[in-house]
């Protein structure tokens, strides 16, 4: 069941049932294709998240209420969702206990090796990209690893930090403040603004893709171009 609400004089937001599910993810991808065809040049932004899609119109549009009616009439939720599985992206991680690995393990009643194994064992999907350029929300984490955010966020999370919060995991594309629990570092750059306007991708994945993490050694981390942050020097 699709619900459309106003999100301003130039925007609408489309809602699916409020849940984190692969079904929502696939249906949102199909709906985006339909909306691109229906609105074409009137479209300024399409911003998907877990169960919603923000549709922003260019200033010269035929009126937000007319467009709402048009979408209500033409958008179709197909009963059988095609399996748009997305591409599989493998991200190497140099797991390290310089941050929250020990605390996560303690809280889960596991040892650090078990935490690392569990984090690597799952295939995650990219549910949303936001918060900062290139920050992808990956889900869902094994329930045994579900960990609340830090009580007080770190002022400085290093670039490439692989972190978890609740049942989500993510990689910080750049140094920033942050409250997620850090398990290690990924040497692969996740956001390459210098590639804007070229045929190279700005990010290694997009919403709907699948992600797996793979443990590497410090030597491999450095060989892949990783740089050790202050904490490890």
């Amino acid at each position: 069941m699709i619900q459309l609400k106003l999100a301003g004089e130039n925007a609408l937001i489309l809602y699916l049932p409020a849940e984190i599910s692969a079904k929502n993810l696939n249906q949102l991808q199909q709906l985006q294709q339909q909306i691109r065809l229906l609105l074409a040049d009137q479209l300024q932004e399409l911003l998907p998240s877990y169960a919603s899609l923000l549709i922003v119109l260019k200033p010269a549009h035929q009126g937000v209420l007319a467009i709402k009616a048009l979408l209500e009439q033409h958008l179709i939720l197909s009963a059988t969702v095609s399996e748009q599985q997305g591409q599989l992206v493998l991200l190497p991680v140099y797991y390290h206990n310089a941050w929250d690995l020990d605390a996560v393990a303690k809280q889960a009643g596991l040892n650090t090796k078990q935490v690392i194994d569990l984090h690597q064992s799952m295939e995650y999907r990219v549910y949303a990209i936001g918060f900062a350029p290139g920050f992808a929300y990956l889900g869902e984490l094994d329930v045994r690893l579900a960990t609340p955010r830090l009580k007080s966020p770190r002022a400085k999370v290093p670039k490439g930090a692989v972190a978890i919060a609740d049942r989500q995991t993510a990689v910080y594309p750049a140094e920033s403040p942050g409250g997620w629990n850090i398990l290690g570092l990924c040497p692969i750059p996740l956001f390459k603004p210098e590639q804007a306007g070229t045929s190279e991708a700005l990010m290694p994945f997009s919403v709907g893709d699948r992600v797996r993490f793979q443990s590497i050694s410090q030597q491999e981390f450095l060989a892949l171009g990783g740089q050790l942050p202050q904490e490890l020097c």
């Binding site: 301003g8 409020a18 998240s49 877990y50 919603s52 923000l54």
Partner: peptide, 11 residues
């Protein structure tokens, strides 16, 4: 509880 969603200008 609300799942994170896109924020429009002026929200």
């Amino acid at each position: 509880a609300l799942l994170s969603e896109g924020i429009s200008y002026g929200a």
